[in-house]
């Protein structure tokens, strides 16, 4: 079979693109360290979470300090609010590494820090666990992106990343 030299050019281009795409994924994983949300959060009894008797930090959700610059944030997403997040903002200092633990006592919700790729489903019985570096002072919105009922469109919250100097520790919930 005879292949025209122009055809050879665009076959080479297509192959290069594929190699480029794969290289991008590899760079994302190794360079900035982008991770997928996996099953590491484990499971939990949604009834117990609803009753506040799960024996976990979800009974008193909020921010916990776990290291010099490391925080755990426990969030219960329920119809139609994030606790904490909706009634009072989740407050963390700039330059911290924050691990979110999110679960739902009722129906499937979503948790997305608007405008970023911090995004997970919140499934009853499952704990979504994801770690995020907050480098700069900012104010982020949280939105629920899984239809969860009549008030879904009102379900949102706030994360405040405040300067280190102004942060006065996790205020509980």
């Amino acid at each position: 079979m005879e292949i025209h030299r122009f055809e050879k050019v665009w076959i080479a281009i297509a192959l290069l693109l594929i190699v480029g795409f794969i290289a991008t994924i590899a760079y994302g994983a190794l360079g900035p360290g982008v991770k997928m949300v996996d099953a590491s959060g484990g499971t939990i009894d949604p009834e117990a979470v609803a009753a506040g008797e799960s024996g976990t930090a979800f009974d008193d959700p909020g921010v916990r300090q776990t290291g010099p610059n490391e925080y755990d944030v426990y969030v219960v997403a329920r119809q139609f609010q994030f606790a904490p997040g909706t009634s009072q903002p989740i407050e963390v200092p700039a330059g911290s590494t924050v691990t979110f633990h999110i679960t739902s006592p009722d129906v499937t919700h979503g948790f997305n820090i608007a405008g970023t790729n911090v995004n997970t489903m919140v499934i009853p019985g499952q704990v979504a666990e994801l770690t995020v570096d907050f480098d700069e002072t900012a104010s982020y919105g949280i939105v629920c992106h899984e239809y969860c009922g009549g008030g879904h469109h009102t379900m949102e919250g706030t994360i405040e990343v405040v300067p280190q100097a102004e942060y006065d520790g996790p205020g509980g919930s």
Binding site: T24, P32, M36, T116, V118
Partner: peptide, 21 residues
């Protein structure tokens, strides 16, 4: 190539915090 660079490096990685664990 332009769309790829813009989508991955500007839109995906370039905006705010990202999931790292």
């Amino acid at each position: 190539v332009l769309l790829w660079v813009f989508m991955y490096f500007v839109e995906f990685l370039g905006r705010g915090p990202t999931v790292i664990g």
